[in-house]
Computed example of a mutant assay.
Amino acid sequence: MARARSVLIVGGGSAGNTLAILLANSGVSVDLVESRPDWGVLGSGILLHGNALRVLRDAGVWPQVRDAGFAFDSIGILAPDGTVVAEQPDLHSGGSDLPSTLGILRPALQQILIDAVRASGTRVRLGCTVEKLDDQGEGAEAVFSDGTASSYDLVVGCDGIYSTTRESIGVTDRPEPTGMGVWRTLVPRPAELVRTDLAYGGPCHIAGYSPMSDDLAYALLVVDWHERDEADPADYAERMCAESATYGGLWPTIRAHITDPAAVHYTAFHRLLVEGPWHRGRIALAGDAVHVCPPTLAQGVAMSLEDAAVVAELLSSRDVWDDALLTEYRDRRMPRVQTVVDGSMQLAQWLREGNRQAAPALIARILTALIERP
Rank of each mutant, 00 (worst) to 15 (best):
G13R: 10
S14C: 09
S14Q: 11
T18E: 08
T18I: 10
A20G: 10
I21R: 01
A24T: 09
A24N: 09
G27D: 02
V28L: 10
S29G: 11
S29Y: 10
S29D: 15
S29A: 15
D31R: 14
L32G: 05
L32Y: 02
V33C: 13
E34H: 01
E34Y: 04
R36P: 01
R36F: 02
P37I: 08
P37G: 07
W39T: 05
W39C: 07
V41T: 15
V41G: 07
L42R: 15
S44T: 15
S44E: 14
G45F: 01
G45H: 00
L47E: 03
L48N: 06
N51H: 13
N51A: 03
N51K: 04
A52D: 01
A52Y: 01
L53I: 06
L53C: 08
R54H: 07
L56E: 05
R57N: 12
D58H: 13
D58E: 15
D58Y: 09
A59V: 10
G60N: 05
W62P: 01
W62Q: 09
W62A: 12
P63Q: 13
P63L: 11
V65W: 06
R66P: 03
A68S: 09
G69C: 04
F70C: 04
A71Q: 07
A71K: 02
F72D: 03
D73V: 00
S74M: 08
I75H: 01
I75S: 08
I75Y: 02
G76K: 13
G76L: 14
I77R: 11
L78E: 10
L78A: 00
A79V: 00
D81S: 10
T83Y: 02
T83N: 11
V84Y: 03
V84S: 11
V84E: 14
V85Y: 07
A86C: 09
A86W: 08
A86T: 13
E87F: 00
Q88R: 15
D90H: 12
L91C: 03
L91W: 06
L91A: 11
H92D: 05
S93F: 08
G94V: 04
G94T: 03
G95F: 12
S96M: 13
L98M: 06
L98S: 05
P99K: 08
P99D: 05
S100N: 04
S100H: 09
L102F: 03
L102Y: 08
G103V: 08
G103L: 00
I104V: 15
I104F: 02
L105D: 04
R106C: 01
R106A: 03
Q110I: 02
I112W: 01
L113D: 06
L113C: 09
L113Q: 14
I114N: 15
I114D: 14
D115H: 09
D115C: 05
A116Y: 01
A116N: 02
V117S: 02
S120D: 06
S120G: 02
G121R: 09
T122N: 06
R123A: 14
